[in-house]
Simulated scan of single mutants.
Amino acid sequence: MGSSKSDVRFAPVILAGGSGTRFWPRSRKAKAKQVLALDGQRTMIQQTLDRLLPLADASDVWVITNDLLDDVIGEQLPEVPRERILSEPAARNTAPACALAAFLLERTAPETVIGIFPSDHAIKDTARFAEVVRAGVALAASGDKVVVLGVPPARAETGYGYIELGGVVDDPAVADSGIEVRRVKRFTEKPDRARAEEFVASGNYAWNGGIFLWSARTLAGAIREFRPAMAPLLEKIAAAYGTAEFERVFAEEYPQCENISIDYAVLEPRSAKGEMNSGIYCLPGDFAWNDLGCWSALHEHVAACPPDMVSIANVIDGQDPLTISIDSCGNYVYAPGKVIALVGVSDLVVVQTGDALLITTRERSQDVGKVVAELKTKGREDLI
């Protein structure tokens, strides 16, 4: 594992099917956040692929998305073979999407290590990311193991899942990497504030960053064990891949899959076997990770200042060269082509597009998805 690419076959799977409602009005169904350049010139999904290419060939990458985004993703990722960009016939959460890749690969290369990578993450230390993933691939390839990357928690965040860490493992598969391996005791989804504070204070929890590594055989086997009704559906789809029947079989079978996350479908029931028997291991996701889930997260990510100053920094995106700020702090503003003046305001999010204007606070930016739901009830599909 010392070279840039491992001898183990590695197949990254990029999950890109979400609609990014909390980034409305910039993010729309046909142009969701993963195909937007939110923090630079490269889009979120392009940055995701950029991080993975030192670890795998583009021809080994899979992308799971939807019909509204597959063409633009194909244009943005010309390196990825078009037949490996799969459009879900129906949104079924992350378990069927992850498992689909496992069943496809299990037929011909069951020892292939699959990596699950959401397309909306921001990672600043890409060299460390590659180092940790490389170690995770080696660990996942060494047996019936599940590897998760746990992000050191920066605060008591209630919007993330948490991983309770178990004992340190001296595994020969990663002995030369210098990266600590921990067993996993349990997963807890989105705790309340009091529990989140307790977790962070204990020093024995990590955020669940949604990045997982396992062999195709291990993941397909876990689906058969814990979600047996889903397995024959995915087996039929995998058997039809590469034939003239694939689109029909995919459209008929996939919507019958359970709508469930990979965490609930596989990780939690497997962890219930106990720390010593689950075969779940955690590597440190200490590579300046940020889940760009809402405008406040983007503000935090883009603010070019020390962490203790993020809350008071103004972030002005897409602005005219002239910006005026008087007694204002902690704001995020996106208004391309406009002179922006802030006077005596704090902690606002203001986002202007050609047909919509969003005004909220950073604290309430998690609720922007409710705007999309309200627009839907009012029949304004043109705005979502």
Score class of each variant (00 low, 15 high):
4 S>W: 02
11 A>K: 10
11 A>P: 02
14 I>F: 07
15 L>P: 02
15 L>V: 10
18 G>L: 13
19 S>G: 08
20 G>C: 09
22 R>F: 00
24 W>V: 03
25 P>Q: 12
26 R>L: 15
26 R>M: 15
37 A>Q: 08
39 D>H: 14
40 G>K: 14
40 G>W: 15
45 I>Q: 07
48 T>R: 01
48 T>C: 06
58 A>H: 06
61 V>D: 10
63 V>W: 00
64 I>N: 01
65 T>C: 06
68 L>H: 13
85 I>C: 00
94 T>K: 09
118 P>V: 12
122 A>K: 11
129 F>D: 06
133 V>P: 02
134 R>I: 07
136 G>V: 11
146 V>Q: 11
147 V>T: 09
151 V>M: 02
156 A>N: 07
162 Y>N: 01
167 G>M: 10
167 G>K: 15
169 V>Y: 06
184 V>R: 03
187 F>E: 00
192 D>A: 05
200 V>D: 08
214 W>F: 15
217 R>H: 07
219 L>K: 04
222 A>I: 01
236 K>A: 15
237 I>R: 02
241 Y>F: 14
246 F>Q: 02
257 C>F: 04
258 E>Q: 12
263 D>H: 01
266 V>L: 11
271 S>H: 05
271 S>I: 06
284 P>A: 11
288 A>I: 10
292 L>V: 07
293 G>C: 01
294 C>D: 10
305 C>L: 03
313 A>K: 15
322 L>T: 14
324 I>G: 00
324 I>K: 07
325 S>N: 09
332 Y>N: 03
345 V>P: 08
361 T>K: 02
370 K>H: 09
